[in-house]
């Protein structure tokens, strides 16, 4: 029962992958959607569960991506070793930053994480000797699983599907555990959480690191899929897009983040047909969603269904 959503997710995505392996919207856009799902679910741990805000998650994505790119192209390291190195670097950096940054709340926390994102972005643009500057790095080798070289779109589709499912599984597990409850308690009332014996500073720091490391791993996978990385992929705009996904789907709900990510990936694909109206429509749709479904698409929908169901129950009780 706890994992029902995950099974549905797997059935739908594996089904689509098997039925339409050559469809552009499945193999290509679908793979992008998986990246966004991993990132949004990871960010939701920090934002939706713990009630914090980060406008700098693209920085962690960039650190993972560039560490993988540099270590595999310059030093010929195995992609999985490079990925672990990126995750460790991100882990170390986020651990170092967590305590001072997370003393801040609300707007101030948003500003601090925004600053972090901007600093990393500037570093990636400026340090040409290491990062290739604005042009980025290319020629990044594909990953190899046993003797299978992963380089077709549909292979990536299934690999990213598996990683997304794992991220969702982690998120659902955490929800019903000691530390997951602690995080949601911090969201509900930080003072009450402390009074119950929760070391809120430590819990927030831990989830910040967890979220950052998952984001970094997604970044590593991204460079191998694209064979290319530039600072544009880790900009402030991308951080904001991730936050939008989490909020749009429904803060605090794992599948809210999944839906938010999917919507923000597919929406632009369909709006392309409206040509110059695209951006306008995109903005208008996001605004309408937030005005009419302030709890997010997924959470509002679930609430709505529950409501209908409860009304029916009440009516049944009334008529019997």
């Amino acid at each position: 029962m706890r994992l029902v959503g995950l099974y549905i997710f797997l059935a739908v995505t594996i089904g689509l992958g098997l039925l339409f392996p050559d469809n552009y919207y499945v193999s290509v856009v679908g793979s992008t959607a998986f990246f966004h799902i991993i990132l949004a679910v990871a960010l939701n741990l920090f934002m939706g569960y713990a009630g914090q805000i980060s406008l700098g998650h693209a920085a962690f994505f960039g650190i993972g991506a560039y560490t993988s790119a540099i270590l595999t192209t310059r030093f010929n390291l195995n992609p999985f070793v490079a990925m672990s190195a990126g995750a460790m670097l991100t882990g170390a950096l986020s651990t170092l930053l967590a305590r001072p940054i997370l003393k801040l709340k609300g707007h101030y926390l948003a500003m601090a994480t925004l600053g972090l994102g901007i600093i990393v972005h500037i570093f990636l643009v400026q340090e040409e000797w290491l990062t290739g500057g604005p042009d980025g790095l290319s020629g990044i080798p594909p990953i190899k699983i046993a003797s299978l070289v992963v380089d077709t779109d549909i292979q990536w589709y299934f690999i990213l599907c598996a990683v997304s499912a794992m991220t969702i599984w982690i998120s659902l597990n955490l929800m019903d555990s000691r530390m997951g409850r602690a995080l949601r308690a911090i969201h509900g009332s930080e003072i009450a959480a402390e009074v119950l014996g929760i070391d809120t500073a430590s819990a927030k720091a831990q989830v910040f690191v967890l979220s950052a490391v998952l984001t970094s791993i997604a970044g590593s996978l991204f460079v191998h899929q694209q064979a290319f990385i530039s600072p544009d992929s880790c900009s402030f705009a991308f951080s904001v897009e991730l936050v939008t996904m989490v909020v749009l789907g429904g803060l605090g709900s794992t599948f809210g983040a999944v839906f938010g990510a999917a919507i923000l990936t597919f929406l632009p694909e369909f709006l392309v047909h409206f040509e110059e109206l695209e951006v306008l429509l995109y903005g208008a749709i996001l605004m309408c969603i937030m005005i009419f479904l302030p709890k997010g698409v997924f959470v509002s929908a679930v609430d709505g269904v529950m409501h209908l169901f409860q009304r029916r129950c009440v009516r049944d009780v009334g008529s019997s």
Partner: peptide, 17 residues
């Protein structure tokens, strides 16, 4: 949530159930 101090599992154990 109030049973926090009566049990001890950490965040990683929670993630991996």
């Amino acid at each position: 949530t109030a049973c926090h101090t009566r049990i001890s599992s950490g965040m990683i154990s929670g993630c991996l159930r």
